[in-house]
């Protein structure tokens, strides 16, 4: 395998590690704010790593730029929604916390 293929596998693998970390944070942290923190930080970084891993497998420049654009848009959207959720949670602290189990 060429060096770029190995590198892309490594990057995507690290991205998956970050996604897993974010999901574990979502499931195990006690309140909304720490869960938001875990989600936005870890998931966006994970997405960035996956995108860069995917870029290494592309050949056209336009597709690479589109992938980076997707990452930037997700970054902006995720930051905005994180802010909105945190604002709503701060304003209504008495909303019942939903349980973590599947019941």
């Amino acid at each position: 395998m060429s060096i770029s293929a190995v590198l892309s596998y490594l990057l995507i693998g690290f991205g998956l590690v970050f996604f897993t970390a974010g999901t574990v944070g979502l499931l195990r942290f006690p309140d909304v704010f720490s869960r938001l923190h875990a989600l936005t930080k870890a998931d966006n970084l994970g997405l960035g790593l996956v995108v860069f891993g995917a870029i290494l497998r592309q050949s056209e420049l336009t597709v690479m730029l589109k992938l980076v654009l997707i990452w930037l848009l997700v970054l902006i959207a995720s930051a905005t929604t994180c802010y909105l959720v945190a604002e709503s949670a701060r304003r209504n602290p008495d909303v019942k916390e939903s349980r973590n189990d599947a019941a």
Partner: peptide
């Protein structure tokens, strides 16, 4: 208490 962040986001997007 309309959110400035949301407005900017919408303005941008």
């Amino acid at each position: 208490d309309r959110s400035k962040v949301l407005e900017t986001f919408v303005h941008l997007l």
